[in-house]
């Protein structure tokens, strides 16, 4: 309940935030704090300094740039969930976000915070993987746009390097409405994903991703390949959603074994895909 002591720095701009990070290399960034603060309260995280980026204007807001939806990293789940622009362009995104945590978590938690934290049981990593997003990362030497497929690198590990800040999430918008579905099996206590499967139909066919079961979110390439060139119908889906992952690659605990989670991946993938048919 009581965190270890730390020093607090509030950034007013992105450049100030980067500067603070330069001066406090051990510091953690604080946006919504809903991944970080719970870990600090259990003293699983004891950063000596926090840099509060929640008020940095460059990190806030949702806008459309051509065929791309740009979401500032410090935009809260609630802001995304209630955004008319998002509801019109990717209606399945608010639906997925509504499954995260609870309303208070969504009022404070931010998209960038979730993605940069890369909790293996978080929902959004699977969603951005199937949306084929790009992540804008700003460092002292400038900005780079990272493909989502190379963003999640391990448990709590991403492409964001020391001294860098995830600033924006870029989601390509197809013609019309993006078709995506997210199926989640929530942990009954924590409400994190025991298994979450996201699927989307893109210009290059089906994209599918898995969160919750492994040490980080991954594409379900086996499923994507099985459906490649196939018409999407109940039969093809049923046939494709078999033994998608090997239980040996998954995490397990006393409530949800790896074997059971592997089975859930098949079931949830099927159910998500059926929603798109």
């Amino acid at each position: 309940m009581y965190t270890a002591p730390f020093t607090y720095h509030r950034a007013q701009s992105l450049s100030e935030a980067l500067q603070m990070l330069q001066q406090n290399p051990e510091a953690k960034l604080l946006a919504g704090g809903h991944s970080l603060i719970p870990a600090m309260k259990l003293r699983l995280a004891t950063p000596p300094a926090l840099i509060d980026i929640s008020r940095v204007p460059e990190l806030r807001g949702i806008r459309r740039e051509g065929n791309t939806l740009v979401i500032g990293a410090a935009t809260t789940y609630y802001e995304i969930e209630s955004s008319e622009l998002v509801r019109q362009s990717i209606p399945a995104l608010p639906e997925a976000i509504e499954q995260i945590g609870d309303p208070m978590v969504r009022n404070k938690g931010t998209i960038g915070g979730s993605l940069a934290h890369a909790d293996p049981a978080a929902d959004l990593p699977a969603v951005v993987l199937v949306l084929d997003a790009k992540l804008k990362i700003q460092g002292p030497g400038g900005a780079r746009l990272v493909d989502v497929d190379s963003f999640f690198q391990g448990m709590f590990t991403t492409a964001v390097g020391p001294g860098e800040i995830l600033t924006e999430v870029h989601v390509p918008l197809p013609q019309g409405v993006a078709r995506m579905a997210y199926e989640k099996f929530p942990h009954p206590a924590s409400r994190y994903a025991v298994v979450g499967v996201a699927v989307a139909i893109g210009p290059n066919g089906v994209r599918a991703a898995l969160t919750g079961a492994g040490d980080h979110a991954v594409r379900l390439s086996k499923l994507e390949q099985a459906l490649s060139g196939q018409p999407l119908n109940a039969q093809s889906i049923e046939a494709a959603c078999q033994n998608l992952v090997d239980a040996g690659e998954l995490m397990g605990d006393h409530n949800f074994s790896a074997e059971y989670r592997a089975h859930l991946v098949d079931v949830l993938a099927k159910r998500a895909l059926l929603r798109l048919v």
């Binding site: 942990h187 009954p188 206590a189 924590s190």
Partner: peptide, 12 residues
């Protein structure tokens, strides 16, 4: 105790 807090113990 693996259900040592409300993250693990499922009070409905």
């Amino acid at each position: 105790l693996r259900s040592s807090n409300l993250l693990e113990y499922a009070v409905p």
